[in-house]
C-alpha cells in the first residue's frame, strides 16, 4: 500500500489534535474516569486521589499523542505512568480479575474520552473528526496493551514469588540432636518441591554439621516411582557430602505400594516412625539410653 505524505501528515495532525483535546478536557475526563471501577476501586483513599491518578494517565496519553506515537507501547510518554498502571492492574488482579477483564476495564475508559473529543472538535469538518477519533481509538488500544503487559509480567512475578514462598514455608528443617537434622514432608512431592527439600536439607547438613538426616514421609499421601526417585536422589546427595539419610514414616500401606510397584530403594535406611529413625541415628552417633535415666545420656 502506498502511503502518501499527505496521509502521514493527516495522521500526525490527528494525533496531535487528540493530544490537545486530552489536555484541554483533562479535568472533565478525569472526573468521569474517576468513577470507573479501574480507578475507583484502586484509589480508595479519596475521590481526589482517583482524579489525580486519572490526570496522570491523561497527561501520559496526551504526551504520547503529541509525539505522534499512538501505536507505540514503548513511547516514552508511558514511562511515567507505567508503575502506576502496574499497581492498578496488580490491585485489580488481586480481586480476582483476569488480565482480559482488566483490559476490558481499560477499554471502557474510551467512551468518555470519545465524547469529550467529539465535543472539542465540534466545529471541525467530519474528516478531521474521523481522523482524530481513529487516532484516539488507536491510542486507547495501545494503553490497553501497556496495561496488559504490566499485568502479565506482574502476575508472573507474583506467582513465582508466592510459589517460592510456599515451597520454603512447607519445608522446615529441624535439628533433633547434635548432628541429627530432620525434615517432615507434608503433601505431594513434585519436582520443584523435592528440589527445595533437597537443597534445604543439604544446607542444614552443612550448617549443623549433621552426620544423620531424617526424611520423614508420614505426611506424604502416596509414594510413586517419581517420589521414590526424588528420595533416592536426596539420599545419594547427602551421602556424597558425608551424611547418612534415614527415611522414616513408611506406613504399612506405603510399604506395600513400594513393594507392589517394584520400586528399588536400594541401600536406603528406612524406619516405620520418626522415633525409630532418631533412635537409629542416636545409636550411630554413639548416644546411649540408660535403663534408669529419664533422658538420653552420652556414653
Amino acid at each position: 500500500m502506498r502511503v502518501s505524505e499527505q496521509q502521514i501528515g493527516d495522521e500526525w495532525s490527528s494525533a496531535s489534535q487528540v493530544g490537545q483535546a486530552l489536555r484541554h478536557r483533562r479535568e472533565q475526563i478525569a472526573q468521569r474516569w474517576a468513577d470507573a471501577p479501574l480507578f475507583r476501586t484502586v484509589f480508595t483513599v479519596s475521590r481526589d486521589e482517583a482524579v489525580e491518578a486519572c490526570k496522570a494517565v491523561l497527561d501520559a496519553l496526551a504526551e504520547v499523542a503529541e509525539a505522534g506515537r499512538v501505536e507505540d507501547v514503548d513511547a516514552p510518554g508511558f514511562f511515567v505512568v507505567r508503575e502506576q498502571l502496574a499497581r492498578m492492574s496488580a490491585s485489580r488482579a488481586r480481586t480476582g480479575l483476569s488480565p482480559a477483564q482488566i483490559a476490558g476495564e481499560v477499554a471502557a475508559l474510551r467512551s468518555s474520552a470519545v465524547e469529550h473529543l467529539t465535543a472539542e472538535l465540534e466545529q471541525e469538518p467530519t474528516a478531521v473528526v474521523h481522523g482524530a477519533l481513529l487516532a484516539l481509538t488507536t491510542l486507547m488500544g495501545t494503553l490497553r496493551l501497556v496495561v496488559m503487559e504490566t499485568a502479565l509480567s506482574d502476575g508472573a512475578e507474583l506467582i513465582n514469588r508466592q510459589r517460592q514462598q510456599l515451597l520454603e514455608v512447607a519445608t522446615p528443617v529441624i535439628k533433633l540432636w547434635d548432628g541429627i537434622v530432620a525434615v517432615p514432608l507434608i503433601g505431594t512431592l513434585d519436582s520443584a518441591r523435592s528440589q527445595v527439600v533437597m537443597e534445604s536439607l543439604l544446607e542444614a547438613i552443612v550448617a549443623q554439621q549433621a552426620k544423620y538426616a531424617i526424611l520423614d514421609i508420614t505426611g506424604v499421601p502416596t509414594v510413586d516411582s517419581l517420589v521414590a526417585q526424588h528420595l533416592m536422589k536426596t539420599v545419594a546427595a547427602a551421602r556424597l557430602m558425608g551424611a547418612e539419610c534415614v527415611v522414616s514414616g513408611v506406613r504399612p500401606a506405603i510399604a506395600q505400594t513400594i513393594v507392589q510397584l517394584g520400586l528399588d530403594l536400594g541401600g536406603v535406611v528406612t524406619r516405620a516412625t520418626l522415633a525409630d529413625a532418631l533412635a537409629f541415628a542416636l545409636r550411630g552417633l554413639g548416644v546411649g539410653f540408660g535403663p534408669t535415666s529419664q533422658g538420653a545420656v552420652a556414653r
Binding site: 547438613i205 545419594a236 546427595a237 547427602a238 557430602m241
Partner: peptide, 16 residues
C-alpha cells in the same frame, strides 16, 4: 567437604 551444590549436580549427572 563436598558442597551441597556439587552433590546435587553429581546426583543429577548420574554420578553417585
Amino acid at each position: 567437604g563436598m558442597r551441597p551444590t556439587v552433590a546435587i549436580t553429581l546426583v543429577e549427572l548420574g554420578l553417585t
